[in-house]
Design a protein around this nucleic acid. Structure first.
Lengths: 218, 218
DNA sequence: CAAATTTTTGACCGATTGGACAAACGTTAG
DNA sequence: CTAACGTTTGTCCAATCGGTCAAAAATTTG
């Protein structure tokens, strides 16, 4: 009748589960699901494999739990994108929030990227449901801005994709970015450079400022 | 004295190696290196595991070969970025070439993404050497355009990153793109939409055309 | 054709994997 | 203190992994 599932969580259970999830995030994000072993996660969490399996019965259960939590955090910035306030300011701060997440939660970004790269076998329904709904909704907001002439007319879906791509790139392709830019000389100058660039890209584009070409030569 | 390595390739060897590499690309790009098994690759190539291991002695040898070939193809578009011709046209066609590659060689893109995501354990030297040199060189070209006032002044490295990120996104995050945009209604309208958007993004930015804000109110 | 060589296969191996289990150990409430 | 419950561990298992090997089969060469 009353199964284990119905019983409330113990203090130790809550703590240890959290410990395991933290360790699993570290391992999964670095090696992918199949590339990670329970032993690795257990060691990172400072416990034995059977002990870990006492808290999560299957490897997939850890991954699932991690994934569910991730999606909320991950979509939060987009949810905040609001109709009130200046559109360009709103987009600018959305880009900045996403970039901050790439800086502060690179493991989460990579965990997500790993899942998508392999065809999202475990979260495809969520993408087609929850995610699509949210994006469609926000695309409508952006369309409104375009109709009002507040920003240039373009495809809002691809705009969102390009914001995702450019910001998450700094987390997912971190190794490549570091390799190309060379050793970074302290501080988060790297981050500020990226922020400045992306702001300019999305707001100004590459075309030279209107001044020069506007002045007709004689 | 004369080892196997010195002997020239047989006809069958050439053919079968090609067959294996094609199968391995399929499997590796879908499941990553550790997520793929020799058995899977062998089956995809239509041969037995020991037979496959007759042509490639180790799993890593297949991956290495694949990776070496990939890098040439992958960097070709950037190498073509040339100092001659109009800068904006040059950048536009670079973006288009990269987008075409994401469409025509998505497996290659994912294979590369997988490798980078996991910290590029097998190609880090190549990133810090060959790739960095090439990017630095092209960044200098772009800087020249900026100094000449042909395009707006910005960080050329981050510009290149953002082109990589946005274009490869359509291959690497294909599942997500499809999920959000819904079932695509035939043709490569999807591709053309992305191409149009990226061109607009990189060339025009989001700011509304200069007309309106230029007119100082009162 | 026959010998030499290349290709293919089935059987096998040790290592690693995810996971089961019962026994030992801790903790806590009555 | 003790009984009940929660936690931890060592041992074990079957499946799968990358890879070997010798022998059979196919092919090439003279």
């Amino acid at each position: 009748m009353d199964t284990k599932a119905l019983r409330p969580r113990t203090r130790i259970q809550t703590e240890k589960r959290e410990l395991i999830l933290e360790a699993a995030l570290e391992v999964f994000s670095a090696h992918g699901f199949r590339g990670s072993t329970i032993d690795q996660i257990a060691e990172a969490a400072g416990m034995s494999k059977p002990n870990l399996l006492y808290y999560f019965r299957r490897k997939e259960e850890i991954h699932e739990t991690l994934m569910q939590r991730l999606l909320d955090t991950w979509l939060a910035p987009l949810k905040e994108l609001d109709d009130i306030g200046d559109p360009l300011t709103e987009l600018r701060s959305y880009i900045r929030r996403k970039l901050e997440m790439a800086r502060d939660f690179p493991r989460e970004s990579r965990l997500f990227a790993n899942e998508i790269l392999q065809g999202a076998p475990r979260i495809k329904p969520m993408l087609e449901g929850e995610l699509k709904t949210l994006v469609d909704e926000k695309a409508e907001v952006i369309k409104g801005w375009m109709r009002a002439g507040k920003i240039v007319k373009t495809d809002p879906w691809h705009l969102i994709f390009s914001i995702w791509a450019t910001t998450q790139h700094y987390a997912d392709f971190d190794v490549q970015v570091r390799a190309v830019l060379g050793p970074d000389r302290g501080g988060d100058g790297r981050f500020e450079d990226a922020a400045r660039f992306l702001e300019q890209l999305f707001v100004d584009g590459l075309k030279p400022p209107c001044t020069t070409p506007r002045v007709q030569p004689s």
